[in-house]
């Protein structure tokens, strides 16, 4: 029951043009306002206004770039996914402890899950050691944390909808065809 209270945020109704703009920048946020305006058959001013509104409403949360750090020497990260069981607290449920864990910069994502454990955390660090230290010194010492199970990530095949290894991005078409 308590779970539902935590899925509180109301979804907002958007116009089809606003949704279309979101889809365009979700694919590539570097695209110019001018291009977006042409694509949705609107004015640049209107697109700017829409983007501002979507940013203000926190529907557009941020504009990150997906980088394959494993290709950069000396910048390879160790990533772990940690299943965490916690005791929910009266009145605030899982929120309090989740928000607390989320503030650690090592935590790159954190979700409340249904099933065998409660929180799913992704941790990024420079070494296994660093992650182990984080788990033993920071995470498991938090009051309501009952147990943790750490899984180290061995290889990334796909992240946020982007394939890391495939030939799908190659154009194999003939240069001119009827």
């Amino acid at each position: 029951m308590g779970y539902m209270n935590e899925l509180e945020e109301m979804a907002m109704k958007l116009s089809s043009e606003e949704i279309e703009i979101l889809r365009i920048i979700e694919e590539n946020h570097k695209i110019s306002v001018e291009s977006i305006a042409l694509m949705v058959e609107s004015s640049e001013e209107q697109v700017r206004k829409t983007l501002k509104k979507l940013e203000d409403e926190k529907i557009i949360m941020s504009y990150p770039t997906l980088i394959d750090w494993s290709k950069v020497e000396g910048q390879e990260n160790v990533i772990a996914m940690i299943d965490v069981k916690v005791t929910p607290k009266r009145g605030v449920g899982f929120d309090e402890v989740a928000k607390r864990i989320a503030r650690f910069p090592e935590v790159s994502s954190l979700y409340l899950m249904s099933g065998a454990y409660d929180l799913s955390i992704t941790i990024e660090g420079k070494s296994m050691n660093q992650i182990a230290t984080f788990v033993s010194e920071k995470l498991s010492t938090i009051d309501n944390v009952i147990s943790t199970t750490t899984h180290f990530m061995l290889k990334k095949y796909k992240h946020d909808g982007v394939l890391f290894t495939s030939g799908d991005d190659q154009d194999r078409r003939m240069v001119v065809s009827p």
């Binding site: 154009d171 078409r173 003939m174 240069v175 001119v176 065809s177 009827p178």
Partner: peptide, 10 residues
Amino acid sequence: VISLGVGEPD
């Protein structure tokens, strides 16, 4: 060459 001459999906 950038081709706009292709008669099939990308």
